[in-house]
Structure formats: structure tokens, C-alpha cells
Amino acid sequence: MVPLNWYLMLSAAVFAIGVLGFLIRRNIIIIFISIELMLNAVNISLVAFSHYLQDLRGQILVFFVITVAAAEAAIGLAIIIALFRNKDTVHVDEMNEMKG
């Protein structure tokens, strides 16, 4: 039996990798993948707690997260393609039009 802490540490590690990747990398596809990593890190901890507490509601929530993530991936990739067509690049340093 793997203890809960291990799952949580794994989850934290994956989440941290996701955050760092999001902040550090400049390729928008990598950033996008980092977001997926963060989502899945959360999924891990949700499933771990669900198992630990013998409560299925956590796993139900995971399904929702996966669904939303899938939808988000579809829209996100579409946006990235649109961006790439406009800018001929996936480098985020060149995408600074959101300035106030």
C-alpha cells in the first residue's frame, strides 16, 4: 500500500514542474503542456484523497477536470494555430499586445 503522502508529493512535484514550465519556457506549446501538467497534478491529488477517504466524489470531480481540460486543449490549440498563422511564431515574447 502506497501511503497518501507519496501521492501528494508526486502531485506537488508535477504541479511545481508545471508552474515552472509555465513561467520559464517561451514556446507557447510547451506553456500549454505545462498547464496540462498542472491540471493532472491536481487530478492525482484528487484521486489520492478520494481513495484515502473512500469517497467517490473526488473521482467524479476528476472526470469533470479531464472533460474541461479536453475542451480547453481543443480551444487552446485552435487559438495557438490562429496565433501562429498571424505571427509566424510560437514564441511568447513576441506576443505582448495585451499591454494597457
Binding site: 508552474v19 509555465f22 513561467l23 506553456i31 511568447v92 515574447d93 506576443m95 505582448n96 499586445e97 495585451m98 499591454k99 494597457g100
Partner: peptide, 17 residues
Amino acid sequence: LRKIQTGFLQHYAAIMA
């Protein structure tokens, strides 16, 4: 105040984090 609004997504994310 507007100086912190750089337009770079990652700066906002960093502030959030």
C-alpha cells in the same frame, strides 16, 4: 501603475504565483 501591466502573459502568471 501601468508599468506592471507589461502585456506578457508570463509576467501576470508570475505575479499570480
